[in-house]
């Protein structure tokens, strides 16, 4: 689905007269391979380059160096812009700033309209997409009347209506309350399972990483760790170095281990920790 080879993205800082002041290497040699249907999480602290990476995947930005293929399309080629944007949909952080229309269903239809889909077909796509995120009840609502989680689900539907192969969530849960976070994540998980859509979840919340098949940890524009969530979570020190934190349950597991309690390594969820403790008893 996505293949990145050594991609570099440089951001040129200019002063007020437009002279080059400096060059920031936001992405510094990223290589990765994502298979179709995978659920990928990319974590990193603020400013680690993860959003820039996401924007490269959607061809909102293009790599300064290296090569990037999305769904078999070379992102270097201008011609591929619209195809890439159609096959990798993007959901952004602020729910208010990505809804274009004043009515939910019209917003979901915005993508297909831009793609030149025939009118009848658009309505079908809109209905399917709203059903898939369980927002059909709200089809004629104004987005201003929805909760944060509902708005993000509308945004996901807007992307779905373009029939993408991959959905990128660029910190789409950061501004939501726990309820909205859960709604959004469950929706994404279901899409990944049922529709086999590749999900790239960009986040800074370690609890969300649990659901992923594979995790990439980013720091200073580089991928510093990669592997399954279990593998990532075993290395607390390395995560700390990337300014990240373990979920509470795993912190407790580590604390217990320090006290000499023999708790199995490679735990992931609170339930697993509970089972591990019960076994010792």
């Amino acid at each position: 689905m996505i293949k990145a080879e050594n991609i570099v993205y440089e951001y040129i800082r200019r002063d007020e007269e437009g002279n080059v002041e400096g060059i920031d290497r936001v992405l510094d040699g990223i290589s990765l391979d994502v298979q179709t249907g995978e659920f990928i999480a990319v974590i990193g602290h603020n400013g680690s380059g993860k959003s820039t990476f996401a924007r490269n995947l959607n061809r909102l930005l293009t790599p300064t160096e290296g090569s990037l293929w999305i769904d078999g399309l070379n992102s270097d080629d201008m011609e591929n812009t619209w195809k890439i944007r159609q096959s990798t949909g993007m959901v952004f952080q602020n729910p208010d700033n990505q809804i274009i229309s004043s009515v939910v269903e019209e917003d979901v239809g915005f993508g297909p309209e831009n793609m030149g889909v025939p009118t009848d077909d658009i309505w079908k796509r809109v209905e399917d997409a709203l059903n898939a995120v369980d927002m059909i009840k709200y089809r004629s609502y104004s987005p201003n009347k929805l909760s944060g989680g509902q708005k993000q689900r509308v945004a996901i539907a807007g992307v779905l209506a373009m029939h993408p192969k991959c959905i990128i969530l660029d910190e789409a849960t950061a501004m939501l309350d726990p309820q909205g976070r859960l709604e959004t994540l469950q929706t994404v998980k279901a899409l990944n399972k049922m529709e086999k859509i590749t999900i790239i979840l960009i986040t800074q919340d370690m609890e969300e990483v649990i659901y992923a098949d594979k995790v990439f940890v980013m720091d200073h524009g580089k991928i510093t760790m990669s592997g399954t969530p279990r593998e990532i979570f075993t290395n607390e020190e390395a995560l700390k170095e990337c300014q990240l934190d373990l979920p509470q349950a795993l912190k407790l597991a580590n604390e217990l281990r320090k006290e000499g309690i023999d708790i199995t390594e490679g735990l992931l969820t609170a339930e697993e920790l509970v089972d591990a403790i019960c076994q010792l008893y």
């Binding site: 726990p178 309820q179 509470q248 349950a249 609170a270 920790l273 509970v274 403790i277 019960c278």
Partner: peptide, 20 residues
């Protein structure tokens, strides 16, 4: 009312439910 207890507290509850 749609709220939760801290994760740690809920772990303790789970342990209790398991008979510990």
């Amino acid at each position: 009312i749609g709220l939760a207890v801290p994760q740690i507290t809920s772990i303790m509850h789970m342990l209790k439910d398991k008979g510990l």
